[in-house]
Structure formats: C-alpha cells, structure tokens
Write a protein that binds this DNA or RNA. Structure first.
Lengths: 210, 210
DNA sequence: GTCTATAAATTGATAGAC
DNA sequence: GTCTATCAATTTATAGAC
C-alpha cells in the first residue's frame, strides 16, 4: 500500500476553503464555490466540517500559524543584531510573497472578531515579541544601536513589509499606472529598501550616544 | 423657513450607510442594519437609492474622496522639502485618526473591485503623485536630499502612517497585551516617529553625495 | 462516503395602502 | 414620503437513497 500524493476529500475541502475564504473573506465566501473549487458535492462540506463557521475556523488557524511561527526564532541565533533584523525582514517578505493575500485576510477577520476562537488562536500561536524586546534592549545597553522603542521598531518593520502587499491594488493604480510588471519589480526591491531604512534608523549617529 | 440642522431622510440614510458599510464591508453590511441605524423603514433605502449597490457606491465615493484630496497640495507651498514632508505626515495621520476604519475599508473594496465604478472613482479623485515626484526629483538634483526613489519613499510614508491603524486589532493584542490606552498613546507618538524615520532616510550622509 | 432533493433561514427588492 | 406585507432569490444546512 503506497501512499500516493493524491489528497483525500478532507484535504481537498480544506485546500479549496483556504483559497476561497482567503480571497473572498468569511462574508463573501460561498459554500458552493468551495465545493466547486474542491470538485466535490456541497453536502460533503457539512459531512466533514459541520458548518461554514467550523470550516472557516480551520482555515483561519492555518493562515495565522503560517505567519506567526519560527520568525522570532531568528533572534535566537548567534549573529549580530543588524544581521538578525535583516534576516527577519528578508524572510518575512519571502513568506508574504508566497502568500500575498493572507495578511489582509488575517487583519480583516481579526477586526471583525465575531468568533471567539480568533483570540484563542492568536494566544496559542506562540507569537510574542518578548525575545525581540529583550534583544533590542540588550543591544541598546551595549551601545550597539540607538536608543529606540522596540515597539515602534517592530511596527515599523511590519508596516514596511506588509503594506505594499495589502495596499497593492490601490498603490499599483495610483503610483504605478496599473502596471503589474512594474509593481512586481518594485516588490522585489523592497527587501533591500526596508532593510536599509530600518538598519539606518537604529544605527548610531556619528558623535552621538543617544 | 429656517433650515434646521436636522438632517433629512436622504442624509440620515447616507450617514447610517457610511457607518455600516465602512465597518462591515459591502458583503457584511445588511440593508436592515442600515435602516435601523438610520431609524427609518427599510423600504426607504430603496426609495432613495435604488439598490444596495447604488447606496454602496455613494458611500465609497465619499470615503475615497476623504483620503484623496488636498493632501498633495502641501507640496505646492513655499516651505522646504523637509517641512513639506513632515506636514504631509502629520496631516495624514490626523485624517486617519479621525476616520480610523476608512483605510481598511478602501483597501478591501478596491481589492474585490467587482464594481466598475471603483476604478472610475480613483481616477476622478484627482489623486496622483506627479507633484510629489517632480518635487523629489528637483531636490535630488539640487543636492538637498539623498538620491531616493520617489515611489519607494511615498510607499514608505503611507505604510508607516496607515498600517498602525489597519493592523491595530492584531498589533494591540500581540505587542501591547490588548491594552487600549497604551495603544492610543502609541498612536499619538507615531507622528514624530514616522517624521523622524522618513526625514532621516532622505537626509544626506556626512561625506557622501549619493 | 458521496450523491440528490429539499428544508429553513436570510436578505435584497417590490407592490400597494395611507 | 413613509409604512406594511410579501415576493423572489440566495444560501446554509439537513434528510435520505445508494
């Protein structure tokens, strides 16, 4: 009995649901569309996942975990703080590049938070900034970097990485005359742009210890 | 016949629709909820605005105009480039502060763009970056600022201004232990934080003309 | 496990009285 | 102009055959 890569029905449903929920949102998604996308009968959605809400919960958990994990782990290795932050930015943009619609999806669903499980998912995701905070404060004390607020810093990093993706449709129209290829090139250059900007913002100024 | 500030039915409907559409989105909004919010009968929504889509179009136009206009006008006055950019950032954050849910609303609705009028609204909004581009290139030539890409610059500014608002629910949870007051304080300090970061990024480095 | 048929609830829209 | 009553379409969910 060899295990083929052919996905079973439950997996087919979950994958189809990811696609539809993430692009259409919990309100805009239709069970029929998910069934069509999975190539199966609509009743099977309810057979495997009792309700639309339950199916959505499974998708949300998956999506959130994709953006929570391991990233802060970068701050556990032995390299210097500048390398760590640069690595973080590069990795994070890579992840978003591979899943460009997930950030907006998460923001929207957390915003409406009409389901109780959302808060729980965030807590259980292991996403926290303790390690980041500790690291920044340590380097400030050592005099390696400027005296920055670690919360401002992490929000700056996230903003610069995420916004070009979630704001793409409108930025592309207004700033790039709706040229897709040009915008793809722009996105490619963001890793360097964001790294330089952030590193520059924490680097000590000549003749200043503040 | 004195005109009282009491709004007529049409205005009541539009104001209620703004509130509901902006917070719930075009998919999540319900005509009944808009009617309740306006304190009138549901039929009247159709009497004044033929359909849900037409009513939504009115709301979207209003919302988009609120974020498009006059801001680029700052670049027409006579102050130096650093003052202009700082003014832009301060004004923009002020506007978002007064309408914190509109940016996410616009991003979402432009993203789904299932209505043709969205593209038209953007075009007719007068929002364009020509003036900004011209100004930045002029200052680079003059040697007042670094040789930056004006498109990277405007995206950086928008990202740093907008993201803390649209990402608030999740950032507040993860970074601020869900403390609302602390997050309000954080937002207040963003004007200075963003201004410093951006100005720092375009300021010429000592002993470098690049 | 998977399908067809259908129930049950929601919701945008209209008709018609006042 | 504003209301009540109702339609028509959509959509989630279930029952039951195979």
């Amino acid at each position: 009995m060899i295990k083929i890569d052919k996905e079973n029905t439950e997996e087919k449903i979950l994958n189809a649901a990811k696609k539809v929920f993430v692009t259409k949102g919990s309100d805009g998604a239709r069970m029929q569309e998910i069934a069509d996308e999975a190539g199966i009968n609509k009743s099977l959605l309810h057979y495997y996942y009792r309700s639309k809400e339950k199916l959505f919960a499974a998708v949300f958990k998956f999506a959130f975990k994709k953006f929570a994990p391991n990233l802060m782990g970068i701050f556990e290795n032995e390299s210097d703080i500048f390398t760590k932050i640069t690595s973080f930015i590069h990795s994070y943009i890579d992840i978003i590049n591979k899943n460009p619609f997930i950030p907006l999806f998460i923001i929207n669903e957390v915003s409406k938070k009409n389901a109780g499980f959302v808060g729980a998912v965030i807590k259980n995701s292991g996403m926290n900034i303790d390690l980041f905070e500790k690291e920044i404060k340590k380097e400030i004390k050592k005099g390696t970097i400027k005296q920055v607020d670690h919360r401002q810093l992490i929000v700056n990093i996230l903003a610069l990485c995420v916004f070009p993706f979630i704001g793409r449709p409108i930025i592309q129209k207004v700033v790039f005359e709706d040229n897709e290829n040009q915008y793809d090139d722009f996105l490619k250059s963001r890793k360097e742009e964001v790294s330089n900007l952030i590193i520059n913002s924490i680097t000590l100024t000549e003749g200043s210890d503040k």
